[in-house]
Structure formats: C-alpha cells, structure tokens
C-alpha cells in the first residue's frame, strides 16, 4: 500500500493512495460535515457539505468524490466555505417540513445535529412547506417524506448492500421523491425484503420503525461497515 502526502489546512499529512479526500481529512481528526456520504456506500456528491478548497482548482470540490492526490493543498474550513455550508443547510431545512419538535428522530438526527454544530440558527429563505405524505403501509416501517433530504442513502444501501433496489427516485428537481417499486405503497412492495437497512442509514426521521414516538427513533449505522468488511475482506469465514 503506497502512501501519499498532501497538505490539509497548512499541515503536511500522509494518506493512503487511492483514499478519498474526505477519508484523508477525517483521518486527521478534522470534522467535515456530510449528509449524503456514508462509509460503505457509493459516493454521490449531492449534499455539497463536504466542499473543500483545493489549490489549482477553480471551484470548490466535494471531498467525498475526490481522490486524495499527492501534493494536494487542501483547505477544509474558511469563512466562505463555512458560510456556504450554513446556507446549504438553510436550503435543506427550507425545502421540506422539518419540524424537529415533533419528529421521531428528534435529538438523534444528523441534520439537526449538523445545524447546531455549524451554527445554522435560522433559515433566511422561504420555507416551501410542501404538501407531503407519510406512508405507513409497511408492517414494520414508515416513510415520512416531510423529513426526507434526498440523500439517497436508502436507495444506495438497498441497491448496493441488500441488492433489492426497492427504492429509487421519481420525477426530478424539487419534485423528486423516493419511491418503492412502481411508486406503490411500501407495504405492497414485492421487491422489499424488509431488511430495514434503509431505515438504519437514513440520517433523519424520514424512515423510521413503526411505533416510535417523538425522539424515540435512534439509528445505528455501524452494521454497514461490519457487513461489508465481513463480505469484502472475507472476515466472516464459514
């Protein structure tokens, strides 16, 4: 395994060759916000929170989809980036109905935590307040589109790890919604294996176990790395 060196926030550091810039940055103990990224899933570069400045690049680049390169000079935080991250979170909050106070994931939500961490204390933009539904047709789980941030972790975990591809997205732009099968109620899905991985990886209260009340829905994503390591590195020998 070859090692590369790069400069992050003025410090010369080393990273594994082929590693993503995000991993390299986090390995240094630097906290870089992400919402669509999840270790173990393919990268997407959609939430735009992990944008960093790379010398020689005209534009900010998402660290999750960028491969760490030899000699890269990276800045992870500065006034502009911090401001942009806050604005992006504001847009995320404005898009749907994130009423934290009555959400099943209150106090256990990645979006809520990030807002507090990044100091996003109010939203300047008009709340769009879309009319969105909740699907609780499934025996075990529910989906509340009011809380969905379209990170598509559910779509990816279902496709890449479970292999069912029950989830996908319909329409586009602001009208995008996650769907199961042919946009049918989740409970009627023929492809869903009811494994619940999508619920666990969902960063907000959009996917939840039925029967959970306000603040009761805690997600655990550690299973993902363990399953994948078990599979890919043949750690689980039978």
């Amino acid at each position: 395994m070859s090692v590369i060196t790069l400069t992050i926030n003025g410090e010369l550091v080393s990273a594994r060759s082929g590693q993503s810039l995000l991993e390299a940055i986090r390995d240094q103990g630097i906290s870089l916000p992400t919402l669509c990224y999840l270790d173990g899933l393919s990268t997407r570069g959609g939430c735009r929170l992990c944008l960093v400045e790379i010398s020689g690049q005209a534009r900010l680049q998402p660290a999750c989809t960028t491969t760490a390169g030899e000699g890269m000079v990276v800045v992870t935080h500065n006034d502009k980036i911090n401001r942009y991250r806050k604005m992006i979170l504001e847009l995320t909050f404005a898009e749907r109905n994130h009423t934290c106070a009555v959400c099943v994931s209150n106090e256990h939500c990645e979006l809520q935590t990030l807002a507090a961490e990044l100091g996003m204390d109010h939203v300047r933009y008009d709340y769009l307040n879309p009319q969105l539904g909740i699907d609780i047709s499934h025996e075990k789980y529910g989906v509340d589109h009011n809380r969905c941030i379209l990170c598509l972790r559910c779509v990816r975990v279902c496709d890449e790890v479970e292999g069912a591809h029950t989830w996908d997205v319909r329409h586009r732009g602001i009208a995008s919604r996650v769907i199961t099968d042919l946009n049918r109620p989740w409970g009627e899905s023929e492809s869903c294996t009811e494994c619940g991985k999508c619920v666990e990886v969902c960063p907000t209260g959009a996917l939840f176990d039925k029967g959970m009340s306000v603040g009761e829905m805690k997600k655990k994503t550690n299973f993902l790395r363990r399953i994948l390591d078990g599979r890919e590195k043949n750690q689980w020998n039978r």
Binding site: D159, A164, H165, T166, W167, D168, V169, R170, H171, R172, I179, T180, D181, L182, N183, E190, S191
Partner: peptide, 22 residues
C-alpha cells in the same frame, strides 16, 4: 406497461419508474 418493461429488461421496477418520470 412499466411493469412489463421492467420484467422484460430485468430492471427493478423503481428504476423504470424513476426513468419514466425523470
């Protein structure tokens, strides 16, 4: 029809629906 196409092309139904509505 979407279901038929999804079966024939061996694609997940949600994939076909996603493309058809995009």
């Amino acid at each position: 029809i979407l279901d038929y196409v999804s079966i024939q092309l061996k694609l997940p139904p949600s994939w076909v629906y996603g493309v058809a509505t995009f």
